[in-house]
Design a protein around this nucleic acid. Structure first.
Length: 487
RNA sequence: GGGCCGGUAGCUCAGCAGGUAGAGCAUGUGACUUUUAAUCACAGGGUCGCGGGUUCGAAUCCCGCCCGGCUCACCA
């Protein structure tokens, strides 16, 4: 029992909190409301700065993040999500009572001010406050103004502090929002209909992963959080929706690391009468479009590791990439020399592995990681992917691609299997003889006829990592999963 | 799960051949009506992640645990 499931501890107390509560009481006695009502602003701080005009009367609100007190006058910096503005307080302008009361405002408090715009002799656009009002008292100290908040654990656990202290984090999450909006607009403009399918499912299908389990009392039945929306989206293809997509959360009861969070955002797209080639054209156009919109160009990744998204992207067969890494004679090698070849490439190969397993180890450990710029890997071995159609010229490989960028799988796409009899054989094999694990409701839908279709999944968090240069999935999820804190 | 690194004031960090815990910012008091990392003077502030052990004495050494980061492995 490592995790602490008890109720969170009461907030810790300290001298700063006591001091701030005392200041709050002091302000209340002077007629201020500690936690004020709505405050009509002329604009956000960024808008006020953009529309700055000497002598203009404005109303501004924000968090006090810096304060330079000089006796009978003081400078403040107000801060909001998009910008910053300097405010000048003068005793003879505000009057004695309002000026004195301001002594009890702390860094971190939200205030509103009204006053005229002017420029200081150092050239800083500034509001000369005629009056001020308290909008929300802060009872806790903020991270330090200069060094900011570095502690990674605090940044994730108390993201609001990260957003206050680190402007680039704010900018990254704005970009994430923009990316998702561009994707929706792009797909809508091409006739794709956004749909919502169940997140709570009686069987967790459409992928191979451990699901989170819960219990629905009214039905007296177990339920699972979805690991993929795929089987419901295919039911919609049967129903005649010919272009659908869903952009929402999946849940997988697996480990946590730099590229895995138990809940993550997935885009799944299905196009009736298409196949893997229509998906290829779609994803290339989509990512190029989004990169141009949010990055202003086709360079992605981090400055240390730039990625060139200029189309057309490379397309290469799985076997071809293996030969590039393992030798042109790889296909002809017998098991023993193949094992020796793989070991000579630095891989740890157990003696009992067959050649297909060794080949895939080379792909995962050497080939995939070396594919920095976008590459469509096609014609994967059929045994790896049970839900795709076989290639017509070679039944040992399937008609799919995996889009790999910066060594990470960004989007797999298939020519979807629409043969209900074949689908039943594969699902029954996957269920390992347990009929309760076969999604009969899905098979019933398929038996009513699903058109041929191209389908694709796009890991949105990983796409955001690519377009922002983030190195951890935790940097692109506002509230990433963390272990419970004990001790 | 293995290895390595880390957790000290609200924040950023020093201190670790064992000898009563430090700095900067922030906070408090005082001075200052164009500052912007404001400046000047003085002051307060700590369960050194948690629990054991060794020792006259532990932030420091040893053991266990918690949390985080990197990395390898595993799973998909």
């Amino acid at each position: 029992m490592h995790n602490d499931h008890s109720a969170p501890a009461a907030p810790s107390d300290n001298e700063y909190r006591q001091q701030r509560i005392a200041n709050l009481r002091e302000l209340e006695q002077r007629g201020y409301r500690g936690f004020g009502a709505a405050f009509e602003r002329t604009g956000s701080l960024a808008e006020l700065r953009a529309g700055f005009a000497e002598g203009r009367l404005v109303r501004a609100a924000g968090r006090v993040v810096a304060r330079r007190d000089m006796g009978k006058s003081a400078f403040l910096h107000l801060h909001d999500a998009g910008g910053r503005m300097q405010v000048y307080l003068q005793k003879n302008v505000l009057g004695d009572a309002a000026y004195e009361a301001f002594r009890f405002v702390d860094l971190g408090d939200h205030i509103g001010v009204e006053g005229e715009c002017f420029t200081t002799r150092t050239g800083e656009p500034t509001i000369r406050a005629k009056n001020w009002t308290l909008l929300g008292k802060a009872l806790r100290n903020l991270p330090e103004k200069w060094h900011g908040l570095h502690d990674v654990e605090t940044r994730y656990r108390q993201r609001y502090l990260d957003l206050i202290a680190n402007a680039e984090v704010c900018a990254l999450f704005r970009k994430r929002t923009q990316i998702i909006r561009e994707i929706r607009d792009f797909l809508a403009a091409r006739g794709f209909q956004e749909v919502e399918t169940p997140m709570m499912q009686p069987l967790a299908g459409g992928a191979a992963a451990r699901p989170f389990e819960t219990f629905y009392n009214a039905l007296n039945a177990p339920m699972y959080l979805r690991i993929a929306p795929e089987l419901y989206l295919k039911r919609l293809l049967v129903g005649g929706f010919d272009r659908v997509f869903e952009l929402n959360r999946n849940f997988r009861n697996e480990g946590l690391d730099r590229s895995h969070n138990p809940e993550f955002t997935m885009l799944e797209i299905y196009e009736a009468f298409g196949d893997v080639r229509t998906m290829k054209a779609l994803i290339e156009t989509l990512i190029v479009h989004v990169a141009r919109k949010v990055n202003g160009g086709l360079t992605a990744g981090s400055p240390e590791r730039p990625i060139d998204l200029t189309p057309p992207w490379r397309e290469a067969a799985y076997a071809e990439l293996i030969r590039e890494t393992a030798g042109a004679d790889w296909d002809a090698l017998a098991l023993a020399p193949a094992r020796e070849r793989a070991r000579s490439l630095g891989l740890d190969i157990p003696a009992e592995w067959d050649k297909a397993a060794i080949t895939h180890e080379i792909y995962e450990k050497l080939v995939e990681k070396s594919l920095r710029h976008p590459t469509f890997v096609t014609r994967l071995p059929a045994h790896l992917i049970p839900l795709a159609k076989a290639c017509e010229d070679d039944p040992s490989v399937v008609d799919v691609f995996e889009l790999v960028i910066d060594g990470r799988e960004i989007a797999p796409a298939y020519s979807e299997l629409n043969d209900p009899l074949e689908q039943r054989r594969r699902l029954e094999a996957q269920a390992g003889g347990d009929p309760a694990k076969v999604d009969e409701d899905f098979l019933l839908a398929l038996e009513h006829g699903m058109p041929p279709a191209g389908g694709m999944g796009v890991g949105i968090d990983r796409l955001v990592m690519l377009l922002t240069g983030a190195e951890s999935i935790r940097d692109v999820i506002l509230f990433p999963q963390m272990k419970g804190k004990a001790g």
